[in-house]
Design a protein around this nucleic acid. Structure first.
Length: 364
DNA sequence: CGCACTGGGTCA
DNA sequence: TGACCCAGTGCG
């Protein structure tokens, strides 16, 4: 069946809620690892755009399948990152970088197997924000429809390769390959945030988020790790999750960020983890809050991204005026226990909490 | 000892 | 079965 989605959570005609859901249908639910070829076409690409699927690609390739990607590349613009290309190449994917004066701006994803051709035509790039945060329109065309209009992935990709375009295939073994210069380094923590990335996430905390915060040291409730569970739609809100797990056998992708625990007056390094191979949990480590009694079920946490890897965390207790003021930004329901979350710009957040007046001047 | 891991639960 | 929810174990 064909499907259309306008994400995040705006409109959908079928069961899938957004681009990631459509991709899961094509590449996971309706696909057997090793069968046929997976295709990726995107002008922009970063690590978190693919983090849901690297495991899927690896398993597919290990079982004899192919993954073919066409990504934008440029020496002057930040189109695709070294990190996403390295990860794709390491899993065995074939990556073509298209360097054009006029951007390769198409976005399409799909698969070709013995069952036929399927494709998604979308505005969503292979990036964290494109996959979930931005408003993006996507259409999935099933094999019957693709067959009806005579679409072929092989035909389209061969036609792309036949253009007089500047196409590069970076060599994973050779860091001096000039093709790498078409890619940017997204792990440069000195990167200045785009204004649209200067955002604050507000999330209504639940029991699981606060049980260890409320626990008494020495009790069993105090044991284990202290996390806030976030929506996996929040990939785009964090730096690339490029750290792979060392110990376990279930792959996880994580990153370390600097978190200023404003209520503690303390800054700590904490880990953000995506449990790709366990239960798809997306967790923010908040260990320093353990046992502090600073947050309980129903309170609001505000997580403010100030720089690429620097964040601030503030807790607003249920029943306080600022809790009420911030709750109206938590507009998306997630999970099945009434958790809600949402975003607002940092300038708006600063104004709400009184760090800044309506004219944007900082208040001391 | 804290937290990276584990592996269930639960509802749509 | 996807995506949060939950309660630990045991490693370093």
């Amino acid at each position: 069946m064909n499907e259309l989605t306008l994400h995040p959570n705006v409109y959908q005609t079928g069961a899938s809620k957004g681009l990631v859901g459509l991709l899961e249908r094509l590449w996971v639910r309706e696909h057997t690892p090793g069968e046929g070829t997976i295709y990726i076409i995107s002008g922009f690409a970063n690590y978190n755009g693919g983090v849901r699927f690297y495991d899927v690609f690896r398993r597919h390739i290990d079982n004899g399948g192919r993954v073919v990607a066409f990504l934008g590349g440029s020496t002057s613009q930040r189109l695709s990152s070294k990190q996403v290309v390295r990860e794709l190449l390491q899993s065995g994917a074939e990556v073509n970088l298209i360097n054009r004066k006029r951007l390769m701006h198409a976005k399409s994803y799909g698969v070709c197997t013995g069952d036929g051709e399927k494709l998604i035509v979308t505005s969503g790039n292979f990036t964290g924000p494109g996959m979930s945060q931005n408003v993006e329109l996507s259409v999935l065309l099933d094999s019957a429809t693709a067959g009806e209009m005579d679409f072929s992935w092989e035909g389209m990709t061969q036609a792309m390769l036949g253009q007089r375009w500047d196409i590069h295939r970076p060599d994973i073994a050779n860091p001096d390959d000039p093709a790498w210069q078409l890619l940017y380094d997204e792990e440069d923590r000195g990167l200045v945030l785009d204004e649209s990335d200067e955002a604050t996430m507000v999330v209504r905390l639940g029991h699981a988020d606060t049980a260890r915060i409320m626990a008494i040291p020495g009790t069993s409730a105090y044991k284990g790790s202290q996390y806030f569970w976030l929506s996996k739609d929040a990939f785009g809100f964090f730096p690339p999750l490029t750290i792979l797990n060392r110990r376990g056998y279930k792959s996880t992708y994580s990153t370390m960020i600097t978190m200023n625990f404003v209520d503690l007056g303390r800054e700590e390094e904490v880990r953000v983890t995506f449990e790709a191979d366990n239960n798809l949990d997306f967790r923010l480590g908040t260990g320093p809050l353990r046992g502090t009694q600073l947050a309980q079920d129903g309170d609001i946490a505000a997580i403010t991204r100030r720089r690429e890897g620097s964040y601030e965390l503030r807790i607003y207790r249920d029943g306080t005026p600022l809790h009420t003021a911030l709750t109206r930004y938590a507009i998306s329901f997630i999970g099945h226990r009434g958790k809600m979350y949402g975003y607002l710009s940092n300038s708006e957040f600063d104004e709400v909490i009184g760090l800044r007046n309506a004219r944007g001047a900082r208040i001391h």
